[in-house]
Design a binder for these strands. Structure first.
Length: 436
RNA sequence: CGGGGCGUAGCUCAGCCCGGUAGAGCGCUGCCUUCGGGAGGCAGAGGCCGGAGGUUCGAAUCCUCUCGCCCCGACCA
């Protein structure tokens, strides 16, 4: 993409409304614009990042055996009355009336609908287990939206719902999602730690929040320093329930808890290994048994013909929130530093001298070669000074900057710079090979 | 939902206390000079001062109401 033809409204100054760094940088880098409290328009650069994150989430859900569907954002109140949540949810649910005065709502989550849809297609225990998910916009009328996309009212969320015939199966479904989350966040260059979370009235220990460590995070978190190393999940066979359970138990042997769930005994045991940080919740996995299936009267025929009430879990990832969380975890004073997997483009091609014919020709040629090679490149061909182009490139945080200047062109070289890292003077072919 | 703050040019803000012809920097447009980390000069464009009432000869400025946004707290993917 040529920057001269793109829509990238960057800001030199920080808008006064934005307090946290990810919000400031997303506005400055032309990724989003706010249209109302907690509601954002996604501009081209932001949308590309959102889509990349969404795709990683999707790939890992698919790999974990979950099946993608898409539910409507606007739902009938009827279903919610069946589960009792229409009243219970309170003012956070955006309620709407249609022209016939029917009560509708903008879905804040979708247990009811998924449960109903599931019942539609599953009659027997042999249809289990099932895990169905969607990546869809949600609306929660938060009292106080803030921090940009970290706490918006409208947000993109992946929500998955598992259905199992018995507890052992439900636990395996839970573990599958658990490991899928580890893989998902790791692929985005994030260090997300699963922490024991509130399980509500169901009890048990089957709920974890996945927290990304970031100094600007909103909650205090405490964890064993073993969590600071990444965990290799590549060898884990998620189909092997026993091995998966053992692996996850091994992980969870190391203490990790948010402020609300601190355990003095476990912290004392951790001793010097106990670390404290701040964190942002980017996902949650949750087992809740027959809470909804029972309320909605959902059953499948068991092996003996007797109806069985399936046991459920739900699993959320804040997709739009992740955009902000990644920036919180990865930026410097000049701007964003995108992890490769989620970067809107791989490389910023910078022509330092748009007015220099030789320079422009060289940059055009390199641009064509990068495009032909299928490398995602944003070509700064604007008639701007070098400084302005560097500032823009640093701000939007593409992993690589390929700099074409008159001196280099004369010598047949270009400068390849890693965002936030080293720069090298390379032969053109060498630089292109490096980016391939 | 309690408490506080702010709405003036595309952005960041000044002006408001003490009423009297609406400002700066950046950005934008044109021309010239410049050109390896947000250059300089000259000339321009751009605002019913969030909205509605009121007080006044006169309101961005004072009063009332209203809408919007932000912050702190309680709450939350």
């Amino acid at each position: 993409m040529r920057l001269s033809r793109y829509f990238l409204p960057v800001l030199k100054e920080t808008p006064g409304d934005a307090q946290v760094v990810s919000h400031q940088l997303m506005l400055r880098a032309g990724m989003i614009r706010q249209t109302a409290a907690g509601i954002y328009a996604w501009l081209p650069l932001g949308l590309r990042v959102l889509k990349k994150i969404e795709n990683i989430v999707r790939e890992e859900q698919d790999r974990a055996g979950a099946i993608e569907v898409l539910m409507p954002t606007i739902q009938s109140a009827e279903l919610w009355k069946q589960s009792g949540r229409y009243e219970a949810y309170g003012p956070e649910m955006l309620r709407i009336t249609d022209r016939h005065d029917r009560e509708m709502l903008f879905s804040p989550t979708a247990e009811e609908l998924f449960t109903t849809i599931f019942q539609n297609g599953a009659r027997s225990y042999r249809d289990l287990p099932k895990n169905i998910y969607q990546i869809q916009w949600k609306f929660r009328d938060e009292v106080r939206p803030r921090f940009g996309v970290l706490r918006g009212r409208e947000f993109l969320m992946k929500d998955a719902y598992s259905f199992d015939a018995d507890f052992a199966g439900a636990q395996h479904s839970y573990n599958r999602m658990f490991i899928a989350y580890m893989r998902t966040f790791a692929r985005m260059g994030l260090h997300a730690i699963p922490m024991r979370a509130d399980t509500g009235p169901i009890g048990g220990d089957l709920s974890h929040e996945f927290i990304v460590l970031a100094p600007t995070g909103e909650s205090d978190v405490f964890y064993h320093r073993n969590w600071e190393q990444g965990h290799d999940t590549s060898a884990i066979d998620a189909d092997d329930a026993g091995a998966l359970e053992a692996f996850i138990d091994g992980l969870n042997a190391d203490y990790a808890a948010t402020d609300e769930k601190r355990d003095a005994t476990a912290e004392a045991a951790a001793g010097d290994a106990l670390k404290q940080s701040r964190g942002i919740e980017v996902g949650q996995v949750f087992y809740f048994g027959d809470k909804y299936t029972k309320a909605m009267g959902v059953t499948v025929a068991g092996p003996d013909g007797v109806p069985v009430t399936p046991l459920m879990g739900s699993y959320g990832i804040g997709v739009s929130r992740l955009v902000g969380a990644i920036i919180e975890a990865s930026h410097d004073k000049d701007g964003i530093i995108w992890p490769d997997a989620v970067a809107p483009y791989k490389v910023a091609l910078i022509n330092l001298r748009a007015d220099d014919a030789a320079c422009a020709a060289a940059a055009d040629g390199i641009y064509a070669r990068l495009e032909a090679a299928g490398i995602e490149v944003l070509y700064d061909d604007r008639d701007e000074r070098g400084g302005a182009k560097f500032a823009t490139a640093d701000l939007i945080g593409l992993p690589w900057q390929l700099v074409i200047g008159p001196k280099g062109v004369a010598a047949g070289t270009v400068e390849l710079k890693r965002r936030g890292g080293d720069r090298e003077e390379l032969q053109i072919d060498t630089a292109l090979a490096r980016l391939a």
